[in-house]
Design a protein around this nucleic acid. Structure first.
Lengths: 113, 113
DNA sequence: AAAACAAGTAACCTTTTAGTTACATATGAA
DNA sequence: TTCATATGTAACTAAAAGGTTACTTGTTTT
């Protein structure tokens, strides 16, 4: 779980994921074309993505082919859908709370409650 | 987006989120009780969560109260639901691909294709 | 007013992350 | 077989993350 979130917590990596998703079987060099950093840096990012199982790869001749793997994102999506469903439901309550909190904060500038 | 994923990419922070979610209005010290690290470390984690807007807080007397904020998770959830919905649909295809990839890998141990 | 308490700030250390360059290995093509 | 290509590995650096202790500030309580 850590690995997936950590992998996704980087804009370049999310972009790589998008590229791989839209170009299944692409090589390291293919991915490199979209970035200003060195190939080694790209490879390291790809490794992070692969360790999080967000992509899978296989060697084919002298290139390595990358594929998007939906499973981890699916798992998180499913978990959120079930685990936080109470919050989806109580969304209105949350908005109400936030309005209340903001009101108190504003008042706090003038007097203590 | 980075901030949210990065914040979630740490088990202690996810645990803090759970604590705050189930104990709305809890203080720094309340959260500390569940961890072995120093209060300062906890405060730093809470700041990361707050900068990602996964929690919001307000000072009340000499304590600070923390509240869970569902909005960022909701946003990611919504984005995934729409953006990756094609993958939810093509899930079976993906499984088939992975089976194929694994088969090729296994064969690779014996001979080159 | 003084003590106790809760949070905040500063300075520091260690580990991890993100990048680099230089070199090595393996494959495909001429 | 030789050369170009694609990836892989090693060693290094700079910055960020995650933690610590010591000290400060502000608020209750006695």
């Amino acid at each position: 779980m850590d690995a997936v979130f950590q992998a996704l917590g980087s804009a370049p990596r999310r972009k790589m994921l998008d590229i791989i998703q839209s170009m299944p079987g692409c090589s390291v060099n293919d991915v490199c074309k979209y970035f200003d950093m060195s190939r080694i840096a790209v490879m390291k990012h790809l490794r992070v993505l692969e360790e999080a199982e967000l992509v899978i790869s296989q060697k084919s001749g002298r290139t390595r082919e990358y594929y998007f793997n939906v499973v981890p994102i699916q798992l998180i999506h499913d978990r959120w859908t079930s685990e936080y469903s109470k919050f989806w439901a109580s969304h209105v309550t949350d908005i109400k709370f936030k309005a209340e909190a903001k009101r108190k904060q504003r008042q706090g500038h003038d007097r203590k409650d």
